[in-house]
Design a protein around this nucleic acid. Sequence first.
DNA 1: CTGTTAGCGCATTCAT
DNA 2: ATGAATGCGCTAACAG
Lengths: 385, 385
Amino acid sequence: MGFAGAERGTDGRVLSPKRPNAFVTIKDVAAHAGVSVATVSRAINNNGYVAADAKARVLAAMKKLGFRPSQRARSMRSSRTMTIGAVVSELVNLVHLEFLRGVDEAASEKGYVVLVATSQGSPEKEREIFQRMVAERTDGVVVGTLVGGQRNIDILADHNIPVVPPPGPLARQLNATWIAKEIAATREMAERLVTLGHRHVAFVTARGVSGIRTPSFYRKARFEVLVDCFSENGVEFDVVDIRRNAAVSEMAVEVVKATRAPSAPTAWVAATHLVLPSLLTGLRMADLDIPKDVSVVSYGDSPWARAYRPPIAVVGHDISTEARALTSMLLGWIDGQPPDATQVEYRTRFIERQSIGPTRLRPPKLSRSLEPSRTRPVPASSSRS
Amino acid sequence: MGFAGAERGTDGRVLSPKRPNAFVTIKDVAAHAGVSVATVSRAINNNGYVAADAKARVLAAMKKLGFRPSQRARSMRSSRTMTIGAVVSELVNLVHLEFLRGVDEAASEKGYVVLVATSQGSPEKEREIFQRMVAERTDGVVVGTLVGGQRNIDILADHNIPVVPPPGPLARQLNATWIAKEIAATREMAERLVTLGHRHVAFVTARGVSGIRTPSFYRKARFEVLVDCFSENGVEFDVVDIRRNAAVSEMAVEVVKATRAPSAPTAWVAATHLVLPSLLTGLRMADLDIPKDVSVVSYGDSPWARAYRPPIAVVGHDISTEARALTSMLLGWIDGQPPDATQVEYRTRFIERQSIGPTRLRPPKLSRSLEPSRTRPVPASSSRS
DNA sequence: CTGTTAGCGCATTCAT
DNA sequence: ATGAATGCGCTAACAG
């Protein structure tokens, strides 16, 4: 077919210079049906009065000509684009996919279409994205990952474009709920590790890469909680920070290095689901058995975590459901219903699986002369009922 | 902020009824800068002559007012929306994510924005999506999964909207290339299994769910090749078909069932990456060791396949790169460069990992009285050079 | 019931 | 170098 066909409009004049506009317009339909454009508009929108036969002729002409009303022209008048934006830092992680799925489900249900954009972890790119969303006149935006802070959100707010999670007091309320759940689950997980006798835990993060929330939230809800919880119990707590965008193999090497330390961690926590494959690869390369040699926990659940040998314990979120609820809230907001924090329910919880078990404090492999490890006897069930 | 502010236009009149249109228009900027709209337009587009001081005033006004030219109004004139569509069947699989990543990379590089939509495996929904893409006047569409066949593609073609993979002879050429690669890799994989002594292979599929191509392609490039290859070598070949949208646990149960058969398969092939977690979960539940008891191969690679214990052998695609190339081709096409099949390079290949190894023909566990399994001695390298 | 008209926000002639 | 006028495709108000 190519662009050769249909370069002329109804009246035979050559159309706009850029590209031949092959699209059938309401005018063409009107001419074909022998009515005015207003009648066509009324017919296709079931709006106002229109004679049965006229309507029939219009519908026939529409079908014959393959007429698709331009949503863009429509939104010029209605100031509703039926488009929402979804912004995430990148598209590499099952977490991002689940997020998009939730957004897509809620959006397509209501006839909205989703504009997806990635900030690549760059605040400037995020700015540009938000500006583009404004230019596109999206009816609302769902922010999965925010890297640029409130300043960037303001770009949307300044144009009265609804955003979720919403800024302001509601945000605090939502975030408070989320953090509370997160903290509770994290505490549960940490205490379980302590109970199982672990005295050295490593936290594996990928700098700059997080999931669906801002890094500061993760820090507050995960890292700081773990620091507190472990220091209370006299547990050594390391951070293995891997540079952003490192290949899995590179990350794995970092992990292997950490396992070589004189007194290596006996439990490993993946700060986000993204780093879990790297962590697992590293532990495999270090020839460590799970959970006999080391225990493993991850944030974020997936079929893969469940399929692993052994299945990986997680602090699981139902990201998809959360995103869905958040998006529904957004669409309601667009329709005039004020956003309400109770609409989103977070169900973070610790799910224990076979990847964690009691420590057997392995004797440090390297130099036995070095400060003999404390050989603290590991009670199978110490301070537990 | 809410919608309370800015309900009035420049001249104080109340704006359109629907929603208060808070957007600053070119008119506002013009008034503020004391010039005409034409001058503003010229200034922001670096088009035509405009005095330096006038330009400065315009730019200042723009910044002050936070003016974002409406991309929608722009595209009314230019008939270019700088928007492309990306269509997949669903968002559940790393394959879909990789596809979207490729599209997003290529698109955002050129200033395009991506409209994502899922057909949920329904040809009618796919129709609606394509119609919506037409209504949105997307400059082009990248089809990840096509469930409705050429008929649906025609919706776009009828409106002269470029689509990739492109229909027509070029499509055949592209598909031929893809299929050839796929067949070669599949053959290599199958022959490897034969060489390792496997005489009973199972092919695990999820009905209706595939990856990024049409089911018929997969059938041709994977299933039929395997059928041929195995029948040539006297290998029994089963299909374990799992119903679409089944939970992982359900799928796993199906797998477990299959392992219970009197003469169970010794090698398992996941038809798409989607079913691999289910397959692995099933094999774990059946308490089968990999690769001692059974070998496993999957189509599609991922960090998880590499992180598994043991790492899973795959017929790997670089989906992301393919999607990227395909999208670049699309954007070039939009710009007038005819699509060229050589722009897309497929690099499917068989990657052997520790998940496959020689069979040890396990004696059927159930009834030894039943036709004693052929106890054929397994030559480590039988009909091979 | 139907047609005419006036914009929505912007880019582009065509005058000046 | 600039402004007035036109039209992109569509809907809504108004007048038949």
